[in-house]
């Protein structure tokens, strides 16, 4: 990232704008089909977090699609955790915590286990926001440790 978040070149920005949509859709798909194919909420969350890391690198931290995401990252993460807890707690209506309370659909389709899809999407939110927050913290630490050296060398 260059000085104060003006991001990378126009070419990178245009390409990123195109593939960011694909990355987000891919992450959602990996999470949603987690009960049928390799993947799941964690893998999908990692994909989406990587997408937003890419966007932050391309557009800089102060503008672009990453901005809205990283201002609310703590709340998003908390919402993911609460969504998981809420979905799991609804199982109590059938007698047990974590019991699948949604009807089971026909096999090998997205709707074959809607309960798992909801849990995977909650994990996607938690992991995606959590990893992105971790990335932002690392950037912050990097700036803090670099700060004293700024005067001597030309950036």
């Amino acid at each position: 990232m260059r000085e104060d978040g003006d991001g990378l070149s126009v070419i990178v920005q245009v390409v990123t704008r195109w593939i960011l949509v694909l990355i987000v859709v891919y992450g959602l798909a990996v999470a949603s089909f987690g009960h049928l194919t390799p993947g799941g909420g964690f893998a999908g969350g990692v994909v989406i977090a990587c997408g937003f890391v890419l966007a932050t690198l391309a557009f800089g931290g102060r503008s672009g699609p990453a901005r809205a995401f990283h201002r609310r990252v703590a709340q998003l993460e908390a919402a993911g955790a609460l969504a998981f807890l809420g979905v799991a707690a609804l199982g109590w209506t059938l007698g047990h915590f974590m019991q699948a309370w949604m009807p089971r659909g026909s096999g090998l389709t997205l709707a074959s286990a809607p309960f798992l899809v909801l849990l995977n999407l909650a994990i996607l939110l938690k992991v995606g926001a959590g990893l992105f927050a971790g990335f932002m913290v690392l950037v912050l630490f990097d700036r803090l440790t670099d700060a004293p050296r700024e005067g001597e060398g030309g950036a």
Partner: peptide, 12 residues
Amino acid sequence: VLPLAAGFLCLL
């Protein structure tokens, strides 16, 4: 569940 929910509500 109770402390977990309370904790994440604090953050939300």
